[in-house]
Design a protein around this nucleic acid. Structure first.
Lengths: 346, 346
DNA sequence: CATGATAGGTTTAGCGCTATACCTAGGTCG
DNA sequence: CGACCTAGGTATAGCGCTAAACCTATCATG
């Protein structure tokens, strides 16, 4: 069937190893003439090395896994931000001639299975809880260069790339406070567990404290990431807490849902309530009014993840195992001063 | 390093093949007792089969490639619809215990390289021009079950899944005509080349013809898919063709851009101009007003792609190599009757 | 009792590649 | 002139797995 090294070697009248060396660009030990001849034949016959054979023989696959949690129906599709990261990672890796294996993880041990089974050189874990990362031991990882994105795990085996979540929240909440808001709600997914959301929550608390605003626990709500979840929360908030004049959410898609939910209950954004999102996903600029949000340096995150991974693969020891990138507030149309007369509707 | 079949065999005191048979669930030839014992050890030792070795020995990889064009900076990220398809495919394949390799294709021959190199069982080509698909011959494909999504290629080697693009366009344009529009613009990417857009264009023409509306070629414009491209087109349209009262675009993201472009020039949607998108991507429901659009059966498309592929892999011969799924018009807020007094702005 | 079946395995021969050790002819050097 | 490089290769031994052929004891059958 497919043409193999052996075929090329036979046709060129050299040994298999010589062809292998030429194909892999090993400088040494081959005369220019032989090299040319082999390269010609390789091209003519359309030879493509078998990645499985290489992976087996060389113990390196040039394959990087991208593992994303996938409980039941949910998958990478829900959060636009995640999707953008996937695209960027693919590009970075392609540039280095690595391939990307995309895999949704439904059960815990699938992480380990994926890492071992495919003999991955590296893997990026996207959106896992810190606890999941912590759990991974040397046996489970087995030499794979692991990068946990947006994690605050303490696991020394995992490299980390994230944004300055604490600072991002500070930026957003400070902006709201500066506009005159005092009753500011916080909405994000299961935040006692995952570090990213907790850091943002801490940033939120800090700014409130700095400004002498008491934290009202009833204003801090767990809302899973998704448009519909945001919408439901927005409606509830409008009905139950008309005194709230601002909401800080940990994802743009959530913010968009919240705005719609508020609108459904007759409260306008930013007239009655201000809303700030997080990520500056593409959609943030498509909605009306355009979403004020905290921007992460997405290309930077992808590039840094890949760089970290490559350094580890090259055996370079880095001083830090984690990188935190800067964030900035993107002021658009959903944050404004609170209405003059307290909170109730019109 | 990692634990192998051999290790398990040694520990269980059986031959390597027995372990292999048990691990692969081959019923025959193993007593229940032996099976249990082996399974125990497999579990205890955390054995995970090597996919590369399997792929090499069995000539099947349980890997499916997802190939997407990636010219320069662009990648799968731009079109939300593409992204949704990726997510669905991953889920379908995972269900069947296949893995997904995601690969952007920058140069022609990378398609062939990807197919051969990884010994892929199947591959989905997403968003390629028909001509690219046509070019693939048996040598390039070499036994891979190939599904071209949204293609109208004549290549008998490629299976095809698509929606009824002609019908979708008919639905949209008929809706506009029924509302009273006569000057309806068409905007889509490089449409002489790719079949999907051409079919939609033909559907557009047909409905115009049916209703005695002359096709004005100046109203048919090539606009690459992307928000900014749509925006630029929207502005141009507003300035240069104030007589146009409706626009049919071949992608939601394009439609959203167009609406913004029109707005930037002072023309409101749907008051002054109606806009219909295509795909019913998630974002269509997030913008204001919500986008009227042609919905494709996305989960159906992904499921059908996988089914087609699996049937081919199982050697089942199917009567048809192509499946076309139904579409429906989702009426939301961006299509309305044209303004009373001709087209000029307010 | 010879003849099969059958259950329950084992042995052999690779899949396509790489790592590593090895070989040989011609030149170099003290 | 013998020891030794070095350029330019080759030979061998796997990597971890599977397909396919083979083996052996046991039991049923005519």
């Amino acid at each position: 069937m497919a043409v193999t090294l052996k075929d090329i070697a036979a046709e060129a009248g050299v040994s298999l190893m010589t062809v292998s060396n030429v194909v892999n660009g090993k400088q040494a030990r081959v005369s220019a003439a032989t090299r040319e001849r082999i390269l010609r034949i390789v091209k003519d016959r359309g030879y493509v090395p078998s990645a499985s054979a290489r992976s087996l023989a060389a113990r390196s696959s040039r394959l990087v896994g991208l593992l994303v949690p996938a409980e039941g129906e949910a998958s990478l599709t829900i959060d636009p931000h995640t999707v953008e990261v996937v695209g960027m990672l693919e590009r970075e890796l392609r540039r280095l001639d690595y391939h990307l294996m995309l895999r949704g993880i439904a059960r815990r041990k699938e992480i380990t299975e994926a890492l071992k089974s495919w003999n991955l050189d590296g893997a990026v874990l996207l959106g896992f809880q810190d606890a999941e990362i912590d759990r991974l031991d040397a046996g489970a990882i087995g030499g794979v260069a692991l990068v946990a994105m947006d994690s605050y795990s303490a696991n020394p085996l995992a490299l980390e790339v994230r944004s300055d979540d604490f600072g991002g929240a500070e930026l957003a909440v400070r902006h709201l406070v500066a506009l005159g808001h005092r009753r500011i709600a916080f909405a994000g997914p299961g935040f006692s567990a995952t570090g990213v959301v907790r850091k943002r929550y801490e940033g939120y608390r800090k700014v409130l404290a700095e400004n002498g605003i008491e934290v009202d626990d009833a204003l801090v709500t767990t809302v899973e990431i998704g448009h519909d979840e945001g919408l439901a929360y927005g409606r509830r908030l409008a009905r139950e807490r008309p005194d709230v004049t601002a909401v800080f959410t940990t994802a743009d898609i959530l913010a968009i849902g919240v705005i719609e939910g508020l609108a459904a209950e007759g409260r306008s954004v930013p007239g009655d309530v201000s809303v700030i999102g997080y990520d500056n996903a593409d959609i943030a600029a498509y909605v009306t009014p355009k979403l004020t949000t905290v921007a992460q340096d997405l290309p930077g995150k992808a590039a840094e993840a890949v760089r970290l991974m490559m350094d580890r693969l090259a055996g370079k020891e880095r001083p830090e195992r984690a990188t935190a990138l800067g964030v900035r507030l993107v002021e658009r149309g959903t944050a404004a001063p609170p209405p003059r007369r307290g909170g109730s509707g019109r």
